[in-house]
């Protein structure tokens, strides 16, 4: 049925809405939807050419048209949802997120978006625009290391991140490590 493929994209977008990661870009489906749309367009042209004043044929052509529009909307929705997620990620975890799941043009987007972001940040040197919006509750926090990551340099010294050890350290020192998921905050 026409429109089934586009439906898949929407389902995919809905599924990934609450995911942390951005799922793999569905190149095949996107391509198939485009192809289907082109076919529909050809069919519509054909129907219009032979229709004359046959109202059934005109109606058929109309339905073809609607199907194309629907496909287009679905494609746009799918991409928009991904882009919004990308933007959000770019703000909050800049350098650290995985780009292998993205399509080539998305990767270009991320790169350029980051450039823009850096430019904006340069204008406000004193403010960490990409930092967390929640004020820290404590100056020091307890964190637990999740994997062996060796030595990590911080503002005041060196961390030896060995798996299954626990630290009581400055929040500012480990802020980045928490984002990178090397350590987790210990709930009190």
């Amino acid at each position: 049925m026409y429109g089934d493929l586009a439906d898949k994209l929407i389902a995919e977008a809905r599924r990934s809405e609450n995911l942390e990661q951005i799922p793999l870009y569905q190149t095949d489906i996107v391509r198939a939807v485009c192809r289907e749309t082109r076919q529909l367009s050809a069919l519509e042209d054909q129907a219009l050419a032979t229709a004359g004043s046959d109202r059934t044929k005109l109606a058929t052509a109309g339905v073809y048209g609607l199907c194309q529009r629907r496909n287009k909307r679905c494609l746009l929705a799918y991409h928009r949802q991904r882009l919004l997620k990308l933007q959000k990620k770019a703000w909050h975890e800049q350098d650290s997120f995985e780009t292998s799941n993205l399509s080539p043009s998305e990767q270009v987007f991320v790169r350029e978006f980051n450039e823009v972001l850096v430019n904006v940040k340069d204008m406000f040197e004193d403010i960490d625009l990409t930092g967390s919006m929640d004020p820290p509750r404590e100056m020091y926090v307890e964190v637990r290391c999740l994997q062996d990551a060796g030595e990590i340099q911080t503002e005041y010294g060196v961390f030896d991140l060995s798996k299954n050890s626990q630290f009581y350290v400055r929040q500012s020192d480990v802020h980045r490590l928490v984002q990178q998921k090397l350590v987790e905050l210990v709930k009190k």
Binding site: M139, Y140, G157, D160, S162, Q166, F167, Y168
Partner: peptide, 23 residues
């Protein structure tokens, strides 16, 4: 407000191993 690290150790060998990585 003293910053510290806690590391559980199973036995002497793991104590020595962790100790060798002391900063």
């Amino acid at each position: 407000l003293i910053l510290y690290k806690t590391e559980p150790v199973i036995g002497y060998s793991s104590l020595r191993e962790s100790f060798s990585r002391l900063e």
